[in-house]
């Protein structure tokens, strides 16, 4: 259990998908104008990462691996299956949420299609493969990664809300400042690099 908590903390703060790997930047920059929308997108990312990571783990180990059902190395189909799982999960979640919780759908719904092309989701799955996690570790990694991404987008949205009232050169307004801010936040996060939660005992 302790190991899983470590992986969660590590993937949320130290190996933050948004600020250490800079994944999912497109939606991160596009949907961070207000905290409210950022909150919705962040939640949706946690949700989808949490679901797709274990499914992709199962697919990668049991279907594509050399010791899987087909006994052959099918890893060249990995990209297609991963992205198909992500896209169909997103669509499934969208339908389920729409049917059973219209209020949640109203706050999350419009972001769900955006998530399919959020590289943090696919990137998370690919990192999971290259880090050779087992099933429960993959779940912890997915939830932690999603949570870290959620915090990062809320942080930048809050800063951008404030900075709207500052005198920024016209050409730097909006997008330019967002890039600069993300870079600085990334530098701050580099300070956490290499901390090993397992050593705090």
């Amino acid at each position: 259990m302790g190991d899983l908590v470590n992986i969660f903390i590590k993937s949320a703060f130290i190996e933050n998908l948004a600020l250490a790997y800079f994944l999912g930047m497109c939606s991160y920059l596009a949907v961070s104008k207000t905290v409210k929308t950022a909150f919705g997108l962040g939640l949706a990312v946690i949700f989808v990462l949490g679901i797709t990571m274990p499914i992709n783990w199962v697919i990668n180990t049991w279907l594509l691996g050399e010791n899987g059902v087909f006994q052959t190395d099918l890893t060249f189909l990995r990209f297609i299956l991963f992205i198909a799982v992500i896209a169909s999960m997103v669509q499934l979640v969208e339908m389920v949420v729409e049917k059973y919780s219209p209020s949640l759908y109203n706050s999350l719904g419009i972001f769900l299609p955006l998530i399919t092309v959020n590289c943090a989701i696919l990137g998370g799955s690919l990192f999971m493969v290259s880090k050779e996690y087992n099933f429960s570790e993959a779940v912890a990694f997915g939830l932690g990664g999603g949570f870290g991404w959620f915090l990062a987008i809320i942080a930048i949205a809050a800063i951008r809300e404030k900075i709207k009232y500052s005198a920024v050169p016209p050409a730097m307004r909006g997008l330019g400042m967002a890039f600069l801010l993300t870079g600085m936040m990334g530098m701050a996060f580099m300070g956490l690099m290499g901390i090993d939660p397992a050593s705090f005992k």
Binding site: F22, G176, G183
Partner: peptide
């Protein structure tokens, strides 16, 4: 990584200063 952000930010600045109709598009 972070410096890529800075380089792109400066590129955006230069691009928009040179092509002012792009200011405030996003």
């Amino acid at each position: 990584f972070p410096s890529a952000m800075f380089v792109i930010a400066v590129l955006i600045w230069a691009h928009r200063a040179w092509n002012p109709k792009l200011v405030d598009v996003s």
